[in-house]
Protein backbone atom coordinates (compact mmCIF):
# COMPACT_ATOMS: atom_id res chain seq x y z
CA UNK A 1 0.00 0.00 0.00
CA UNK A 2 2.79 2.36 -0.74
CA UNK A 3 1.14 3.75 -3.86
CA UNK A 4 0.95 7.54 -3.54
CA UNK A 5 -2.63 7.64 -4.87
CA UNK A 6 -3.73 5.09 -2.25
CA UNK A 7 -1.98 7.18 0.42
CA UNK A 8 -3.80 10.27 -0.71
CA UNK A 9 -7.07 8.37 -0.71
CA UNK A 10 -6.62 7.15 2.81
CA UNK A 11 -5.58 10.55 4.09
CA UNK A 12 -8.59 12.16 2.51
CA UNK A 13 -10.90 9.58 4.02
CA UNK A 14 -9.48 10.20 7.43
CA UNK A 15 -9.98 13.94 7.23
CA UNK A 16 -13.65 13.13 6.40
CA UNK A 17 -13.48 15.63 3.61
CA UNK A 18 -13.80 12.97 0.96
CA UNK A 19 -15.79 9.83 0.20
CA UNK A 20 -15.15 7.48 -2.81
CA UNK A 21 -18.81 7.81 -3.80
CA UNK A 22 -18.03 11.37 -4.84
CA UNK A 23 -16.09 10.03 -7.82
CA UNK A 24 -19.18 8.22 -9.08
CA UNK A 25 -21.20 11.39 -8.52
CA UNK A 26 -18.75 13.53 -10.51
CA UNK A 27 -18.64 11.08 -13.43
CA UNK A 28 -22.42 10.82 -13.72
CA UNK A 29 -22.79 14.61 -13.47
CA UNK A 30 -20.30 15.09 -16.33
CA UNK A 31 -22.11 12.58 -18.52
CA UNK A 32 -25.41 14.22 -17.74
CA UNK A 33 -24.22 17.69 -18.76
CA UNK A 34 -22.59 16.33 -21.92
CA UNK A 35 -25.85 14.63 -22.81
CA UNK A 36 -27.83 17.82 -22.39
CA UNK A 37 -25.48 19.59 -24.81
CA UNK A 38 -24.93 16.79 -27.33
CA UNK A 39 -28.40 15.38 -27.90
CA UNK A 40 -30.06 18.63 -29.05
CA UNK A 41 -26.98 19.44 -31.14
CA UNK A 42 -27.36 16.13 -32.92
CA UNK A 43 -31.05 16.76 -33.53
CA UNK A 44 -30.39 20.22 -34.89
CA UNK A 45 -27.70 18.98 -37.25
CA UNK A 46 -30.09 16.31 -38.55
CA UNK A 47 -32.77 18.90 -39.12
CA UNK A 48 -30.30 21.00 -41.07
CA UNK A 49 -28.97 18.13 -43.11
CA UNK A 50 -30.27 19.43 -46.46
CA UNK A 51 -28.37 22.66 -45.88
CA UNK A 52 -25.21 21.15 -44.55
CA UNK A 53 -24.89 18.37 -47.11
CA UNK A 54 -26.19 19.24 -50.55
CA UNK A 55 -26.59 16.13 -52.69
CA UNK A 56 -23.51 15.17 -54.71
CA UNK A 57 -23.31 16.60 -58.23
CA UNK A 58 -24.67 14.28 -60.91
CA UNK A 59 -21.36 13.69 -62.70
CA UNK A 60 -19.71 10.41 -61.86
CA UNK A 61 -16.19 11.70 -62.25
CA UNK A 62 -16.23 14.97 -60.49
CA UNK A 63 -12.51 15.17 -60.06
CA UNK A 64 -12.36 18.91 -60.10
CA UNK A 65 -14.90 21.37 -58.86
CA UNK A 66 -15.29 24.32 -61.13
CA UNK A 67 -16.62 27.66 -59.92
CA UNK A 68 -19.73 27.02 -62.00
CA UNK A 69 -20.48 24.11 -59.71
CA UNK A 70 -20.92 26.62 -56.95
CA UNK A 71 -23.52 29.05 -58.21
CA UNK A 72 -23.32 32.56 -56.92
CA UNK A 73 -27.02 32.65 -56.19
CA UNK A 74 -28.45 30.50 -53.46
CA UNK A 75 -32.17 30.60 -53.28
CA UNK A 76 -33.54 30.75 -49.78
CA UNK A 77 -37.01 29.44 -49.84
CA UNK A 78 -39.88 29.38 -47.42
CA UNK A 79 -42.41 26.59 -47.52
CA UNK A 80 -42.16 23.08 -46.09
CA UNK A 81 -38.73 23.72 -44.63
CA UNK A 82 -40.01 26.60 -42.55
CA UNK A 83 -42.89 24.52 -41.34
CA UNK A 84 -40.39 21.98 -40.07
CA UNK A 85 -38.61 24.72 -38.18
CA UNK A 86 -35.45 24.99 -40.27
CA UNK A 87 -34.42 28.52 -41.09
CA UNK A 88 -33.26 28.00 -44.67
CA UNK A 89 -33.07 25.25 -47.21
CA UNK A 90 -31.26 25.20 -50.51
CA UNK A 91 -33.23 23.27 -53.02
CA UNK A 92 -30.71 21.50 -55.20
CA UNK A 93 -32.43 19.88 -58.11
CA UNK A 94 -31.04 18.01 -61.08
CA UNK A 95 -33.25 17.09 -64.01
CA UNK A 96 -33.42 13.44 -65.09
CA UNK A 97 -30.83 12.17 -67.59
CA UNK A 98 -31.82 12.03 -71.25
CA UNK A 99 -31.41 8.26 -71.12
CA UNK A 100 -34.35 8.17 -68.69
CA UNK A 101 -36.70 9.74 -71.22
CA UNK A 102 -39.80 7.57 -71.51
CA UNK A 103 -40.29 5.62 -74.73
CA UNK A 104 -44.09 5.71 -74.80
CA UNK A 105 -46.42 8.26 -76.43
CA UNK A 106 -45.62 10.82 -73.74
CA UNK A 107 -41.93 10.23 -74.38
CA UNK A 108 -42.50 11.10 -78.02
CA UNK A 109 -43.88 14.48 -77.01
CA UNK A 110 -40.92 15.02 -74.67
CA UNK A 111 -38.49 14.14 -77.45
CA UNK A 112 -40.22 16.48 -79.89
CA UNK A 113 -40.07 19.19 -77.24
CA UNK A 114 -36.33 18.72 -76.91
CA UNK A 115 -35.92 18.83 -80.69
CA UNK A 116 -37.94 22.04 -80.92
CA UNK A 117 -35.87 23.48 -78.12
CA UNK A 118 -32.48 22.65 -79.59
CA UNK A 119 -33.37 23.09 -83.28
CA UNK A 120 -36.22 25.56 -83.32
CA UNK A 121 -35.37 26.55 -86.87
CA UNK A 122 -36.32 23.08 -88.09
CA UNK A 123 -38.96 21.82 -85.69
CA UNK A 124 -40.95 25.03 -85.14
CA UNK A 125 -40.02 26.78 -88.36
CA UNK A 126 -43.41 28.38 -88.87
CA UNK A 127 -43.34 30.16 -85.53
CA UNK A 128 -39.90 31.73 -85.69
CA UNK A 129 -39.10 35.08 -87.26
CA UNK A 130 -35.34 35.14 -86.74
CA UNK A 131 -32.37 32.78 -86.84
CA UNK A 132 -32.26 31.84 -83.17
CA UNK A 133 -32.93 28.57 -81.37
CA UNK A 134 -34.28 28.33 -77.80
CA UNK A 135 -31.03 26.70 -76.73
CA UNK A 136 -29.03 29.82 -77.58
CA UNK A 137 -30.07 31.46 -74.31
CA UNK A 138 -31.08 28.31 -72.38
CA UNK A 139 -27.87 26.30 -72.63
CA UNK A 140 -27.53 22.54 -72.52
CA UNK A 141 -30.96 21.97 -74.04
CA UNK A 142 -32.63 23.96 -71.25
CA UNK A 143 -30.87 22.06 -68.48
CA UNK A 144 -27.99 24.30 -67.46
CA UNK A 145 -28.51 26.10 -64.19
CA UNK A 146 -27.97 29.86 -64.20
CA UNK A 147 -29.00 29.76 -67.83
CA UNK A 148 -32.77 29.99 -67.27
CA UNK A 149 -33.30 26.21 -67.12
CA UNK A 150 -36.74 24.91 -68.06
CA UNK A 151 -37.09 22.75 -64.94
CA UNK A 152 -36.80 25.78 -62.69
CA UNK A 153 -39.20 27.86 -64.77
CA UNK A 154 -41.84 25.16 -65.03
CA UNK A 155 -42.47 24.90 -61.30
CA UNK A 156 -43.00 28.67 -60.91
CA UNK A 157 -46.15 28.94 -63.01
CA UNK A 158 -48.92 30.09 -63.01
CA UNK A 159 -47.51 33.43 -61.91
CA UNK A 160 -48.33 37.11 -62.07
CA UNK A 161 -46.03 38.97 -64.43
CA UNK A 162 -45.43 42.68 -64.49
CA UNK A 163 -44.68 42.40 -68.19
CA UNK A 164 -48.36 41.88 -69.02
CA UNK A 165 -50.07 42.64 -65.70
CA UNK A 166 -51.90 39.38 -65.22
CA UNK A 167 -51.47 35.84 -64.01
CA UNK A 168 -49.72 33.85 -66.74
CA UNK A 169 -49.88 30.15 -67.42
CA UNK A 170 -46.68 28.38 -68.44
CA UNK A 171 -48.06 28.20 -72.00
CA UNK A 172 -48.41 31.97 -72.03
CA UNK A 173 -44.87 32.33 -70.77
CA UNK A 174 -43.58 30.16 -73.64
CA UNK A 175 -45.74 32.15 -76.05
CA UNK A 176 -43.88 35.26 -74.91
CA UNK A 177 -40.58 33.63 -75.88
CA UNK A 178 -41.86 33.01 -79.39
CA UNK A 179 -43.26 36.52 -79.75
CA UNK A 180 -40.27 38.41 -78.43
CA UNK A 181 -37.10 36.32 -78.22
CA UNK A 182 -37.87 34.42 -81.43
CA UNK A 183 -39.50 37.48 -83.03
CA UNK A 184 -42.27 35.22 -84.31
CA UNK A 185 -45.77 34.12 -83.40
CA UNK A 186 -46.65 31.60 -80.72
CA UNK A 187 -47.95 28.13 -81.49
CA UNK A 188 -51.55 27.71 -80.22
CA UNK A 189 -51.87 26.35 -76.66
CA UNK A 190 -53.18 23.01 -78.00
CA UNK A 191 -50.74 22.76 -80.92
CA UNK A 192 -48.35 19.82 -81.00
CA UNK A 193 -45.39 22.19 -80.68
CA UNK A 194 -46.73 23.81 -77.50
CA UNK A 195 -47.75 20.47 -76.01
CA UNK A 196 -44.28 19.13 -76.81
CA UNK A 197 -42.47 22.07 -75.18
CA UNK A 198 -44.61 21.79 -72.07
CA UNK A 199 -44.08 18.03 -71.97
CA UNK A 200 -40.33 18.48 -72.19
CA UNK A 201 -40.36 21.13 -69.43
CA UNK A 202 -42.61 19.02 -67.21
CA UNK A 203 -40.42 15.97 -67.69
CA UNK A 204 -37.25 17.91 -66.90
CA UNK A 205 -38.91 19.14 -63.69
CA UNK A 206 -39.88 15.64 -62.60
CA UNK A 207 -39.53 15.41 -58.83
CA UNK A 208 -38.94 19.13 -58.26
CA UNK A 209 -41.02 20.86 -55.61
CA UNK A 210 -43.70 23.13 -57.06
CA UNK A 211 -43.69 26.84 -56.35
CA UNK A 212 -40.17 26.91 -54.95
CA UNK A 213 -37.40 28.95 -56.50
CA UNK A 214 -34.88 26.25 -57.31
CA UNK A 215 -31.17 26.89 -57.15
CA UNK A 216 -29.95 27.86 -60.61
CA UNK A 217 -33.24 29.41 -61.72
CA UNK A 218 -33.09 32.25 -64.27
CA UNK A 219 -29.84 34.14 -64.64
CA UNK A 220 -28.04 35.11 -61.41
CA UNK A 221 -28.77 38.80 -60.84
CA UNK A 222 -25.75 41.06 -60.82
CA UNK A 223 -25.22 43.88 -58.36
CA UNK A 224 -25.63 47.35 -59.81
CA UNK A 225 -22.55 48.22 -61.88
CA UNK A 226 -19.87 50.34 -60.24
CA UNK A 227 -19.72 52.52 -63.34
CA UNK A 228 -22.64 53.13 -65.70
CA UNK A 229 -22.51 50.52 -68.51
CA UNK A 230 -20.51 51.94 -71.40
CA UNK A 231 -20.73 51.03 -75.09
CA UNK A 232 -17.16 52.06 -75.80
CA UNK A 233 -15.71 49.77 -73.14
CA UNK A 234 -18.23 47.14 -74.16
CA UNK A 235 -16.99 47.18 -77.74
CA UNK A 236 -13.50 46.30 -76.52
CA UNK A 237 -14.87 43.48 -74.39
CA UNK A 238 -16.81 42.24 -77.40
CA UNK A 239 -13.83 42.27 -79.72
CA UNK A 240 -11.64 40.43 -77.24
CA UNK A 241 -14.13 37.81 -76.05
CA UNK A 242 -17.17 37.49 -78.30
CA UNK A 243 -16.26 38.32 -81.89
CA UNK A 244 -14.40 35.03 -82.34
CA UNK A 245 -17.71 33.18 -82.48
CA UNK A 246 -20.41 35.83 -82.96
CA UNK A 247 -18.44 37.67 -85.65
CA UNK A 248 -16.98 41.17 -85.61
CA UNK A 249 -20.38 42.39 -86.82
CA UNK A 250 -22.31 40.36 -84.22
CA UNK A 251 -24.15 38.50 -86.95
CA UNK A 252 -23.12 35.03 -85.83
CA UNK A 253 -21.39 32.34 -87.84
CA UNK A 254 -23.07 29.96 -90.25
CA UNK A 255 -22.02 26.62 -91.66
CA UNK A 256 -23.99 25.43 -94.70
CA UNK A 257 -26.84 27.84 -94.00
CA UNK A 258 -27.18 26.89 -90.33
CA UNK A 259 -26.14 29.16 -87.51
CA UNK A 260 -23.55 27.56 -85.23
CA UNK A 261 -23.16 30.82 -83.30
CA UNK A 262 -26.25 33.03 -83.07
CA UNK A 263 -26.63 36.60 -84.34
CA UNK A 264 -26.78 39.07 -81.44
CA UNK A 265 -28.49 42.00 -83.11
CA UNK A 266 -30.04 42.99 -86.41
CA UNK A 267 -32.98 41.42 -88.24
CA UNK A 268 -31.99 37.85 -87.44
CA UNK A 269 -31.87 38.33 -83.68
CA UNK A 270 -34.36 38.82 -80.82
CA UNK A 271 -36.64 41.85 -80.85
CA UNK A 272 -36.90 44.83 -78.55
CA UNK A 273 -39.54 43.16 -76.38
CA UNK A 274 -37.33 40.19 -75.44
CA UNK A 275 -35.99 39.85 -71.92
CA UNK A 276 -32.50 39.76 -73.38
CA UNK A 277 -32.97 43.26 -74.81
CA UNK A 278 -32.87 44.54 -71.24
CA UNK A 279 -29.29 45.22 -70.28
CA UNK A 280 -29.62 43.76 -66.79
CA UNK A 281 -30.81 40.41 -68.15
CA UNK A 282 -28.22 40.32 -70.90
CA UNK A 283 -25.44 41.21 -68.45
CA UNK A 284 -26.57 38.48 -66.06
CA UNK A 285 -26.68 35.85 -68.81
CA UNK A 286 -23.34 36.88 -70.25
CA UNK A 287 -21.60 36.96 -66.90
CA UNK A 288 -22.77 33.50 -65.90
CA UNK A 289 -22.44 31.79 -69.27
CA UNK A 290 -20.18 33.51 -71.77
CA UNK A 291 -17.79 32.81 -73.43
CA UNK A 292 -19.28 29.34 -73.78
CA UNK A 293 -17.64 27.04 -71.24
CA UNK A 294 -15.90 29.97 -69.54
CA UNK A 295 -18.79 31.41 -67.56
CA UNK A 296 -17.96 33.71 -64.65
CA UNK A 297 -14.62 34.73 -66.16
CA UNK A 298 -15.63 38.21 -67.32
CA UNK A 299 -15.86 40.79 -64.56
CA UNK A 300 -19.35 42.03 -63.72
CA UNK A 301 -18.46 45.44 -65.12
CA UNK A 302 -17.30 43.83 -68.38
CA UNK A 303 -20.62 41.95 -68.57
CA UNK A 304 -22.60 45.18 -68.05
CA UNK A 305 -20.51 47.01 -70.64
CA UNK A 306 -20.70 44.34 -73.32
CA UNK A 307 -24.45 43.93 -72.72
CA UNK A 308 -24.84 47.66 -73.24
CA UNK A 309 -22.77 47.41 -76.43
CA UNK A 310 -24.83 44.47 -77.74
CA UNK A 311 -28.12 46.25 -77.07
CA UNK A 312 -26.92 49.53 -78.55
CA UNK A 313 -27.44 48.01 -82.01
CA UNK A 314 -30.64 48.01 -84.03
CA UNK A 315 -32.94 45.00 -83.76
CA UNK A 316 -36.56 44.26 -84.69
CA UNK A 317 -38.94 46.49 -82.69
CA UNK A 318 -41.03 45.40 -79.73
CA UNK A 319 -44.28 44.21 -81.39
CA UNK A 320 -46.33 45.71 -78.53
CA UNK A 321 -45.14 49.19 -79.46
CA UNK A 322 -45.83 48.64 -83.15
CA UNK A 323 -49.40 47.65 -82.33
CA UNK A 324 -50.20 50.69 -80.24
CA UNK A 325 -48.85 53.21 -82.75
Amino acid sequence: MSHPLKHWFESQKQTRKFHPAWIALAVSATLGVAGIIWVPAELVSRAEAPTAHPPPPPAADNKEMHPADMPTVIEQTPGPARLRGAKTIRVDFSPPADAAMPTDEFGEAVRLGKNIFTDTQTYARGYVGNKLNCVNCHLDAGRKRDSAPLWAAYVMFPAYRDKNKHVNSYEERLAGCFRFSMNGKAPAPDSKEMIALISYSYWLAKGAPTGIALKGRGYPKLADPQQPPDEGRGKLVFEANCALCHGADGQGTQVSGRYVFPPLWGQNSFNGGAGMSQIKNAAAFIHANMPLGKGNTLSEQQAWDVAKYMNSHARPPDPRLAKSS
Binding site: A59, L139, D140
Partner: peptide, 15 residues
Amino acid sequence: TSGNWSKDVPACFAC
Protein backbone atom coordinates in the same frame (compact mmCIF):
# COMPACT_ATOMS: atom_id res chain seq x y z
CA THR B 1 -23.04 16.46 -78.73
CA SER B 2 -24.10 17.58 -75.22
CA GLY B 3 -20.92 18.24 -73.27
CA ASN B 4 -20.74 17.79 -69.52
CA TRP B 5 -22.23 20.93 -68.04
CA SER B 6 -21.92 19.67 -64.48
CA LYS B 7 -18.27 20.62 -65.03
CA ASP B 8 -18.95 23.48 -67.42
CA VAL B 9 -17.67 21.49 -70.38
CA PRO B 10 -19.57 22.50 -73.52
CA ALA B 11 -20.31 20.08 -76.35
CA CYS B 12 -17.46 19.77 -78.88
CA PHE B 13 -19.95 20.36 -81.65
CA ALA B 14 -21.22 23.60 -80.06
CA CYS B 15 -18.10 25.29 -81.45
